[in-house]
Design a protein around this nucleic acid. Structure first.
Lengths: 332, 332
DNA sequence: CTGTTAGCGCATTCAA
DNA sequence: TTGAATGCGCTAACAG
């Protein structure tokens, strides 16, 4: 049995509540007594049982990080791992723990049912409003990479990034720019597409249906999409891919087809993750600040936890373009 | 305030302890009464407060998953994300939660100090024995990707995989096979190297120092290593890379240098993650069964949790070679 | 400033 | 089979 405040109280000759006050930092207590108790606690190797404390204070000092299983696996293609990690780094600084869980069938996560967490961060676009809104009335909730009216969320500037990428290709003189994505049903990809459209329209160009290809939500989505694209009679001179995975797939498919990147077809991706520098030519890509997104989400949640009735906000993080070579620029 | 067993008790007209028995499934109770209570609980939307239950039963229904910060980021280069996910999938089936945390400075993870978890899974090779052994006397511990005598661990067959990869290259007729790694200080990479050596020696060949290159623990380790290698007067005809990241870097560096893969230099990697099919040519790689590793680790831990004094074991998972094209085989 | 009392929500004796 | 009493380890309200 581990040492409790009772053990310390007995040893010091005070009451347990005095020990509690000395150790929890709350409540008035004389500095001398506090030091004495602290020392004994230290010597005894006392560690508070946070579950007990939580039961008494009705707080858990834990936040849930929930990701929908559709966004899995958390492998080389996903960037939620980095966000998870950033959240953990941030909340742990403030004494909070991370309960990681996967959302299956849009069912209420067990960690909230069991009241194991004080707040929740949802990762990804596949979060149903019907699920989140009821939760948000009981617990502070922060969304990452997704927006629901009235809820605090942290997102990258997908529209702006889409414009940036497209404008960059336009500035290289391209007029036939394809848009390649897994699916336009995903809100993030849709937003990136909107940016693409805006940029085109501002340049007096129209979105041409035959230049939009989707590969579907599947592991070989890139291959499917590129097969569709390469089958067209007239190939685009540039491709804006909705994420790095598709961009890398595009480069591979183009190379295989005997086309040179960027000379025959330029490619720009979106995410700017580790993949971008792993391919040849190095991928020009819209940077999504994943670490900042995680940090920011954690920060927002901690804020909500400390001041319950804070107003919700949408934090849009900038997504600058990281220029490498696949767009046709000379290597930096 | 959420509904508690007292509310149910009052409504049904029984004592709280009866409700507890009915709902927790433990203790004798008449089936009729149980059903009655269950129904009311259902109607009231009762959800047990697991922290309270944990305090009473001194169990948390949570396991900690700890990764050393050196193995971060959890980005496209890491495969611990997948393992984490597999662990969560497995333990959640049994009602357990995952507390995810990062190990900094080899300090005792807070989740164990605060007794928030019933058991612990350590991910990665960078786990000091001095840290883990004391913990393991208090809590069941399972190691993934790392071995410490007397502790249960789940690892891939690194030595066997190293042999397999090397033998495959030997079977292609290669005699000058380089070994490229981030660092041989890492036990996994060291084991893969040992497999490489064994295979060579069994074929009457010796390890040649000039064919072993390390890039160091850094983000551009692949570049550093390949620069070293390409500077040699005599190039190898094949490269066995200690992981996919280095293999991909090798392919990129070779391509850049005007060499063809696999015609001029064959390449085999290790991990067989998503990267392997993202590069051109598709990477032949030793498969590390990450999902199985996670599942297996979770299973071991759950077993230790249910039967406390189970003997420790080392589970070695097979690492077959996934043949694609970078080794010189025709595409499958 | 400190001790006493009374829970937090649940499980688990022991009687009945 | 059920109820009453007690405790898990800690905090908090109220006295003193």
């Amino acid at each position: 049995m581990r040492v409790t405040i009772h053990d310390i109280a007995k040893l010091v000759g005070v009451s347990p509540s005095t020990v509690s006050r000395a150790l929890s930092g709350k409540g008035r207590i004389s500095p001398a007594m506090r030091e004495r108790i602290r020392k004994v606690a230290e010597e005894l190797g006392y560690q508070p049982n946070m579950l007990a404390r939580g039961l008494a204070t009705r707080s858990t000092c834990a936040v849930g990080v929930v990701i929908h299983e559709r966004h899995l696996p958390l492998d080389e293609r996903s960037f939620y791992g980095v966000i998870l990690e950033a959240i953990e780094a941030e909340v742990s600084k403030h004494g909070y723990h991370v309960v990681f869980s996967t959302l299956r069938n849009h069912a209420l996560p067990r960690c909230v049912r069991e009241r194991r967490v004080d707040g929740l961060i949802f990762l990804g676009t596949d979060i149903k409003e019907e699920l989140v809104r009821p939760i948000s009335t009981e617990l502070p909730v922060v969304l990452v990479d997704h927006c629901i009216p009235g809820l605090t969320s942290v997102v990258g500037d997908n529209v702006g990034g889409g414009r940036l990428a497209t404008e960059h290709l336009l500035s290289h003189g391209h007029r036939n720019i394809a848009f390649v994505a897994e699916t336009l049903e995903d809100p993030s990809f849709r937003a990136r597409f909107d940016g693409y459209r805006q940029a085109l329209e501002e340049h007096g160009l129209r979105v041409r249906k035959e230049l939009i290809v989707e590969g579907g939500r599947r592991s070989d989505s890139d291959r499917i999409a590129m097969e569709k694209l390469l089958r067209k009679k007239k190939l685009p001179t540039a491709i804006f891919a909705a994420n790095d995975f598709m961009a890398v797939g595009a480069i591979r498919a183009l190379t295989k087809a005997g086309l040179r990147v960027p000379d025959d077809v330029a490619v720009v991706g979106f995410d700017d993750g580790a993949l971008a520098t792993l391919v040849h030519p190095p991928l020009t890509s819209v940077h999504v600040p994943r670490v900042e997104m995680g940090k920011s989400a954690a920060f927002c949640l901690l804020e909500l936890l400390s001041s319950p009735k804070k107003v919700s906000q949408v934090i849009v993080l900038p997504t600058p373009l990281t220029i490498r070579e696949s767009c046709g620029c000379r290597g930096v």
